[in-house]
Design a protein around this nucleic acid. Structure first.
Lengths: 226, 226
DNA sequence: AACCTAAACGGACCTCGGTCCGGATCGTTC
DNA sequence: GAACGATCCGGACCGAGGTCCGTTTAGGTT
């Protein structure tokens, strides 16, 4: 499959893990002139796009394992240092590839239509949220797995933070008493791509079972009925 | 701290991840002569012990990060190839260091005294189990984190399998209806060392809160009272 | 005791992620 | 349009994990 991601890639993605280098990107984007959106130098932006495109192509051709930093650099006709300057490390690059769907998911549950977005009762939103995450992860499993940073940073990643905040917020509306932060972490842990991978590919559970499992789990945790 | 681990290390540990090489270890141990316990050649066993000892020393001196395969080999006055032959990879070595406490925990909940071991009601055992795992992980957090294999193998590891089986078994007694396998995975996920690390060290939650969180989670999942 | 084979050993070698810094570029300023 | 400084680029370089294969040795056999 082709991760049609790099199209939106001229604009910087997520906060994107602590830009590794000394604070670059200080110019303003010209079109509107008002936003404080950090912007890259023209050549940098061009290279960024080319790198993402190259990475996506490599994935399509050789799988995630084929995405070597040097290979990506070569495919984009760019120096290796440039890749690291732009994305920090391999995880950063892979994460940038996931950025598109990540942002869409985030937009969906923050301001999209019910049952995912606001408007539906919290419990329903929570149910829908898990299912959405589940299927999104299932689609891009390999990439999700490969993009997983070393254990330390896994949870501090901004994307994870957004999900956590959202789930916590929903939980607070459903079970005002109770340690919602902790419960949120637990719920999210049960949607961990690595776990999904294990359950589906190694233990052969069908997605329907995982989905049912999520609904059941939510019911139990919120002490509502299944 | 010193991981007093390598004392029992002349005997092979856990099933230990798929011994990487072509099936070695075919001799029988001399004392009893009856068991099918795989046994290493004398020199191999000696080197194994020396490697574990060296690794433990390195950890004590320079932290987990100081445990380089080459450093361990050098400290044990052994070739690098030997380290890999014996432990497969870095993860294998680190896992072997955890083996001692892992086995003890396993023995505790499989045949130890209540409330962890058999004899206590399942619900109580489950509660105790989580608390035990929690504190064990907290003690050896660094090592646990470093020993975490790439996402794929995390759940297929035999040690994890043992825990999973146990929790599943307890759950079946408590909530006979319900997808106990899935619930078990979820419960275990909430005890993941990486998560504990994040909650305690990065978000500053005290262990008491995690402990309370576990008890609450168990109560909710089993639909019993807190 | 000599012999023989499976197993273990060692360290050169490869790959890949990540760092560094001299030199090229962009975009601004005057 | 020329000068200038911040930013970026490139690729040599490093360290660590992991592989390979020729050599050595344990330990059973005759």
């Amino acid at each position: 499959m082709l991760y049609a991601v790099f199209m939106s890639s001229v604009l910087p993605p997520f906060p994107e893990p602590p830009e590794p280098l000394d604070a670059p990107q200080l110019l303003e984007v010209g079109t509107a002139g008002g936003e404080t959106e950090p912007c890259l130098r023209a050549d940098a932006a061009r290279n960024r796009a080319r790198l993402l495109e190259a990475a996506a192509r490599l994935i399509a051709e050789h799988g995630v394992a084929g995405v070597t930093m040097e290979a990506v650099a070569a495919a984009a006709q760019v120096g290796k240092g440039t890749v690291f300057r732009r994305f920090g490390d391999r995880t950063g690059l892979l994460t940038a590839l996931l950025d598109h769907s990540g942002r869409r998911l985030q937009a969906d549950f923050m301001s999209g239509p019910p049952p995912l977005g606001p408007g539906a009762p919290p419990l329903m939103r929570l149910r829908a949220f898990g299912v959405a995450v589940l299927y999104r992860s299932a689609e891009q499993l390999d990439l999700q797995l490969a993009a997983q940073p070393e254990p330390n940073r896994r949870f501090s990643h901004p994307a994870h933070g957004a999900l956590r905040t959202h789930v916590t917020m929903l939980l607070r509306q459903i079970v005002p008493d109770g340690d919602c932060e902790l419960l949120a972490q637990t719920l999210l842990a049960s949607l961990d791509p690595a776990l999904i991978h294990h359950l589906t590919r190694q233990r052969g559970m069908p997605m329907e079972r995982l989905e049912a499992g999520w609904l059941d789990l939510v019911a139990r945790v919120t002490r509502t009925q299944a």
